[in-house]
Design a protein around this nucleic acid. Sequence first.
DNA 1: TCTTGTTACTTGCATTATGCAAGCAACAAG
DNA 2: CTTGTTGCTTGCATAATGCAAGTAACAAGA
Lengths: 123, 123
Amino acid sequence: MKSKKTRSACPVACFLDILGDRWTMIIVRDLMLGAKKYNDFLASPENITTNILAERLKRLEAEGIVKREAYQKKPVRYTYSLTEKGHDLEPLMKEMINWALKYKDEVIKSAADADPYGEPREH
Amino acid sequence: MKSKKTRSACPVACFLDILGDRWTMIIVRDLMLGAKKYNDFLASPENITTNILAERLKRLEAEGIVKREAYQKKPVRYTYSLTEKGHDLEPLMKEMINWALKYKDEVIKSAADADPYGEPREH
DNA sequence: TCTTGTTACTTGCATTATGCAAGCAACAAG
DNA sequence: CTTGTTGCTTGCATAATGCAAGTAACAAGA
């Protein structure tokens, strides 16, 4: 039993206990944009550090939001992708973007041009 | 210029820079449920501590998400409520609840009975 | 008057999370 | 045999959070 204690039975609190920190939804965003390998996440403009990235990927996998699959042996390397549970965060992600675009115009218009829901990245 | 540096121009990152921590959306939830006074927030089951509550209310006010109004003098006391910018977080809040209810059934059903989007509290 | 209680905070300190830099294993290429 | 790349891990400083207590300004009752 390695379950982290949830603060309450409220769905909002439960959501935040899993995904409510500075970095986790950034990683989920990158996965939605097509990031698969470790270095894809490091390439994002927020400059996540390697220790936090590694820890969050493990947590997301443990939560069933991300799945990890080996794409080669010798040395074994993994790709990361969203499970159905992870993909189900898309409507929420869209609402985050809607709100931010409505209220952070000046800062964000350039990011909107980057087309967060366009085609996945090429690798 | 007291603007906290944003990590990137991405709307997701900008959202998280403002609201992406363990407590802020809990306070927004309470406001949506009708909390107005300091003690209303303290009464929630997550047991937010007073130092964090005070600091977050100030930040939310500075961000234009919450407005503070005196409801008495001697001693002056304030009520807190959502601005339009704050109310515009409702679709996002609903998606958080949708996702959590879908995936945290066992933990959350009892909270769902509490009707997070029912009538505001009485005071 | 004097004690007790309430509201709305602030302060101090321990613990945990995050940020920053470096290290390292296992290869591939030259 | 050296240099480079990927995918991490480790160590340590700084910042955020948790926990407990304290405080100001009153109100209400004995």
